[in-house]
């Protein structure tokens, strides 16, 4: 376990030693405050005081999607960059299996996404308290926590998808391009029965909050299962390919 933690430290340093590391954190710090300020000052319809603003800043339908996009961009190079820099050679000739090395990278990718979400949460909370809430007691804590969970799930699934693409393409640019394209696509709804088994209509779990469903026959547990199956599939492909591939 100590050994595994040290690998995570390594991966985190590889990201954090880059000059651009702080930019996404600044974005998710400033964005909820900016949006909060603008909608408080200029909008006629202000969000309800119970924590609706915080909820919007976490969900994929709101600022949450930007968090996901930033998380994908930040983690797209985790595997691909090792190939393009050539550092993959020194990385793999250590007394650590490829499974463990990739595992530490995946954990760090999730950690990165969660850290971005945490900063968003703090910033969204601050905006909420300054402009919208009637005191901290008025917040609907359960709703906020559920939104946090849905936001994290959305981010985690796309980070996993991007992680797989990074391994398959070994190109940071292609990984970002493909994953962004897919994130854009997930807004499209095809009203056919087969479509409920696709990834996209299941991505945003918050749609079930007010009793609705994207397509007939879909429920929260149905979507949870579909998401789990896809995530496991992405991981299976990632680890299988990474373990087997010749490093030339």
């Amino acid at each position: 376990m100590r050994n595994f933690n040290r690998l995570i430290v390594n991966e985190w340093l590889k990201m954090s030693r880059k000059k651009s590391f702080l930019i996404p954190f600044l974005i998710v710090l400033v964005l909820p405050l900016l949006v909060g300020y603008v909608s408080h000052t200029f909008s006629t319809q202000t969000p309800e005081p119970g924590g609706a603003f915080m909820k919007d800043s976490l969900l994929p339908s709101g600022i949450g999607q930007i968090v996901t996009i930033l998380a994908v961009i930040g983690t797209a190079g985790m595997v691909a960059k090792e190939y393009s820099l050539g550092t993959i050679k020194f990385l793999l000739i250590r007394a650590r299996s490829r499974t463990v090395i990739l595992g530490s990278k995946y954990m760090t990718a999730l950690l990165y996404g969660f850290t971005l979400t945490l900063v968003t949460l703090i910033s969204g909370f601050t905006a909420e308290m300054i402009w919208f809430a009637d005191g901290i007691q008025s917040l609907d804590v359960q709703m906020i926590l559920m939104s946090l969970l849905y936001g994290l799930v959305y981010t985690a699934v796309y980070v996993t998808f991007g992680f797989m693409m990074g391994i398959l393409t070994t190109s940071t640019g292609a990984t970002i391009g493909i994953t962004m394209f897919v994130i854009m696509l997930d807004k499209i709804m095809i009203f056919r029965d087969f479509y409920k088994y696709m990834l996209f209509p299941n991505m945003n779990l918050s749609v079930y909050q007010d009793g609705g469903a994207p397509l007939p026959g879909m429920t929260l547990s149905f979507s949870s299962i579909v998401l789990s199956v896809y995530t496991l599939l992405f991981l299976l492909i990632s680890f299988t390919v990474f373990r087997r591939r010749d490093v030339a």
């Binding site: 340093l13 030693r17 880059k18 820099l85 050539g86 020194f90 000739i93």
Partner: peptide, 13 residues
């Protein structure tokens, strides 16, 4: 311990 072809490191570190 090995160096295979060129030694490549993380340039920003």
């Amino acid at each position: 311990g090995a160096i295979i072809e060129n030694p490549e490191f993380y340039p920003y570190m």
